[in-house]
Design a protein around this nucleic acid. Structure first.
Lengths: 343, 343
DNA sequence: CTGAAAGCGCTTACAG
DNA sequence: CTGAAAGCGCTTACAG
């Protein structure tokens, strides 16, 4: 392996017979420098394989042109599996950052980490994108600290004036409403919702509220709700608990696809047919949902646009512009598990 | 939003009544500094919410404690979808980096980009992890450049003394052999392999060679091979081309799960039963493969260990230690699409 | 054990 | 249009 000798701007200055300041200006395309000089300098830089030292440049400019993506995992999830929904956002965030000329640091965080202080405070990143949170109540305290320190950050989730920071999220209430409404149209009447409906997970809560509203509007006051976190195992368990109650059921609305997959598995294991006996629907439209049997009817969030928007808003925030929160529309994806093609 | 005022080591020095050098030493746990002084300094640092400026620290130390993960996508793939196999490695790489005390920059690369010069040369990263490549022939030239510049890098793939740099990969030959052998045991005799078997994609090539070897060992010289890239669409197309040939077939070995999914879809559309009429197997064990119908028999690579190993080897490389390439074992995952439970 | 000083490699206000 | 100089915030060799 060859020894690495990095050229500095002084080396170029020497070769070009100009001062180091002129080199710096030329490479930054400053209009102050003579076009011919600039070309000569750029040529030499190329020959020497010169690259600006980012540490020096960043130190001098007091910025990093880097964004940090902090991913909070559900503490209970298998550590080899990342939530597929976040994964799909990772792609668009990475692309949007690159497009805007920012590098992207990616980090998985646990609530126990001292995460709130690690990136922007060390000048490694100009701002943070927060995805997921585990338990919202604990999370909120950390957000408050971030805000107090003047850190620039955006988060994916439900915006709420009561919560610190700017949130971009999709319309979970509408999604919960739409998919429940769809089941009502298909004639289902005996409902259960599986997913934690408390302030520990505001997304699930809003989906639940949409679910409830759809039922109330047609006069249904009677339904079941069971807590579950977003894993197949949790859905499986909740489903069994539900069946043990012996309540009459013809539709189960799940707060996520992962939960729905577990619920369907549990029903299969008991010999209950989906969707013939009980319709089951999910939320997120993760890749697997198009392949399960039956294929999941679910709600699609626009992850591609979401990533782009998170990045754009954060960059605006960094440059001191004012930024509005945003609620993104959702789309119902009808497949088999709702029983739509039974009619 | 509060105005951000970052404390520097001078601020702490002032408050503590010591010199700035002592502050730096104390925060780095240098044994040179008096324990009481150290504690006092640490206390003040905490109060002022002081964090070492990484740009300054990195500049001074000429290192970044950062790794860059460069992900090359198949140029033909839908840009909203990342290869699920890489995604699963992303998790373990991120975790392993954090554990080793390195930050992780993530970037998607196109072959057209000037990627080979962007991270280590700017001192933003101490080393690179390369995942995927698109076309290996073009890729190889870039690798050569990286090596010439003395960049530290490891890549996921087949190690070959003829190729620049250090590769960690799984045993694709063995995987191709094992899964084909499994089909032979189940009584299949008329084979096709779907996946590009040329030097543009060495992984596929090795899987193909394993496939071929398994057949040759039992005296089968006659089989079909069709090119395909790792997408469902490409598998679908190849499958139709195969059927159009009217050759007798009872088993299709696919170079990836994505291809297998497309092949199965094409067979379904023609009313051909899988695995009754034709067995179809994949490679990668992506999450979807456990949910397709029929569920895919496939080959599992140990992505969790792989990510960890890539990070470990790269860090060794950075610290100037000698490092060996590695071939990781694979595991056959038997589900339904091979027809194992028909016997 | 501590401090004064040099220097990492840039960018940019200042002077010409 | 160009150069000399200051300074970003650290780490560490040197001197005591």
């Amino acid at each position: 392996m060859s020894i690495k000798v990095r050229a500095t701007s002084f080396d170029i200055a020497h070769k070009a017979g100009v001062s180091q300041s002129t080199v710096s200006r030329a490479l930054r395309d400053s209009p102050l420098v003579n076009p011919e000089t600039r070309e000569k300098i750029k040529q030499i830089a190329l020959e020497l394989n010169y690259k600006v030292d980012k540490n020096a440049s960043n130190l001098r400019q007091q910025q990093s042109r880097t964004l940090a993506l902090l991913l909070f995992e559900d503490p209970t999830s298998d550590d080899s599996l990342i939530n597929p929904f976040f994964l799909s956002m990772l792609g668009s965030i990475t692309r949007a950052s690159a497009l805007a000329g920012y590098d992207l640091l990616v980090s998985f965080q646990n609530l126990s980490d001292d995460w709130h202080a690690d990136f922007e405070d060390t000048n490694k990143a100009d701002g943070l994108i927060l995805l997921g949170y585990g338990d919202f109540v604990e999370y909120r305290d950390k957000l408050k600290k971030l805000e107090e320190q003047g850190t620039h950050f955006v988060r994916w989730g439900a915006h709420d004036v009561a919560h610190p920071g700017l949130a971009i999220g999709s319309d979970n209430f509408q999604g919960g409403f739409d998919i429940t409404h769809h089941l009502l149209i298909l004639g289902r009447r005996q409902f259960a919702f599986v997913g934690g409906a408390d302030n520990r997970s505001p997304e699930f809560m809003n989906r639940y509220l949409g679910f409830k509203d759809a039922l109330n509007r047609v006069g249904i006051q009677d339904f079941r709700q069971l807590d579950a976190i977003s894993t197949e195992a949790s859905g499986y368990e909740a489903s069994n608990a539900l069946l043990a109650e012996n309540s009459k059921l013809d539709a189960i609305v799940c707060a996520s696809d992962l939960i729905a997959l577990g619920v369907i598995q549990a029903l299969h294991d008991k010999g209950i047919r989906v969707p013939e006996d009980i319709a089951v629907v999910g939320y997120d439209n993760i890749p697997v949902s198009g392949f399960s049997s039956p294929k999941l009817t679910t709600v699609q969030q626009n992850t591609k646009a979401a990533g782009q928007i998170l990045v754009d808003k954060l960059i605006k925030l960094i440059s001191g512009k004012s930024v509005e929160p945003m609620l993104m529309p959702v789309e119902l994806v009808v497949r088999e598990s709702c029983g739509a093609d039974m009619n």
